[in-house]
């Protein structure tokens, strides 16, 4: 019963898959363009945006803060162990701050965001599609791209960088808790070494830029997967899985590229 595909058929299949991917990217680009390249009617758009910032940002706060705290504390523990061998535990604050601002803050926040907020957005939009809410909105004469997709996109771009900064701040405090309060690193040096080595423009600024790029990519993927999903329950579940997987891969890949560009010369 199993059909053996000829090598020719397999190659053709691969080609068809590749074309399908290019088509999907094209659809995604067109969808994004139509959603954001319009002048919004502020009176209606702002309340929608506020609602989405709540759903996407505020509701992610708990996981971001908890994760940040624990990661900061673990960093404190692990880095202390390494530094104490060199007698350089005073550098703890500096190391924690640099790691977080340059890398962990934007990346971990983006991964958590993709998992929590991204999949929720995909499921929501996919469900709206399968219950014909998007269709009926069109029939009433309201463009779902402007009413449903755009507010979620902008909310993601606004909320995620803020979440990343909250993450980094909480983690630095977590590291302080472990390092200073528990392991006895001198409080003054925790902060002064940090202030001496963390550059606002380079480290914090680049971290924010990374966050913005990650945010745009993650929310774009989330929104598109929902909008493009097959309107069945397996279709939606596949779409949410795709959101999490593609977002995570994209974040990690972009992180490498951005790091190579931003932090090359030192």
């Amino acid at each position: 019963m199993a059909e053996q595909r000829t090598p020719g058929a397999r190659v053709a299949g691969l080609g068809a898959d590749a074309l399908a991917i290019v088509e999907a990217v094209g659809r995604a680009g067109i969808m994004l363009f139509h959603s954001v390249a319009t002048v919004p009617n502020l009176r209606t758009a702002l309340p929608l945006l506020a609602r989405q910032i709540y759903a996407i940002g505020v509701l992610s706060l708990v996981i971001i803060i908890v994760a940040g705290l624990f990661i900061g504390m673990v960093l404190g523990l692990q880095l202390y162990r390494v530094l104490v061998d060199f007698g350089s535990e005073a550098a703890l604050g500096q190391l924690i701050a640099l790691t977080l601002n340059r890398e962990l803050g934007p990346v971990v926040t983006a991964l958590l965001f993709a998992g929590r907020a991204g999949s929720a957005v995909t499921a929501e939009i996919g469900l709206m599609k399968s219950t014909e809410q998007l269709s009926s909105m069109e029939m009433i004469g309201v463009d779902p791209l402007r009413r449903i997709v755009a507010p979620r996109f902008w909310a993601g771009v606004i909320a995620m960088p803020l979440l990343a900064m909250i993450f980094s701040s909480v983690a630095i405090l977590g590291g302080w808790l472990v390092g200073v309060e528990w392991l006895g690193v001198y409080d003054g040096s925790y902060w002064s070494a940090m202030q001496n080595s963390v550059e606002f423009g380079e480290d914090i600024g680049n971290g924010i830029i990374k966050s913005l790029v990650f945010a745009a990519v993650c929310i774009w993927i989330a929104v598109f997967q929902g909008y493009d999903a097959e309107p069945t329950s397996e279709g939606i579940s596949r779409a949410t899985t795709r959101t999490v997987v593609y977002s995570s891969l994209a974040v990690l890949g972009l992180d490498f590229l951005l790091t190579a560009v931003m932090f090359k010369g030192f």
Binding site: M128, T131, E132, S136, M139, G141, V142
Partner: peptide, 24 residues
């Protein structure tokens, strides 16, 4: 148009659903 499943907007109340076309 009346869709098969009703297709009401799940995040709006009954009142807001009916008001939707009017507001638009």
């Amino acid at each position: 148009m009346l869709f098969q499943s009703g297709a009401l907007f799940t995040d709006l109340s009954v009142y807001e659903n009916v008001a939707f076309p009017l507001r638009a």
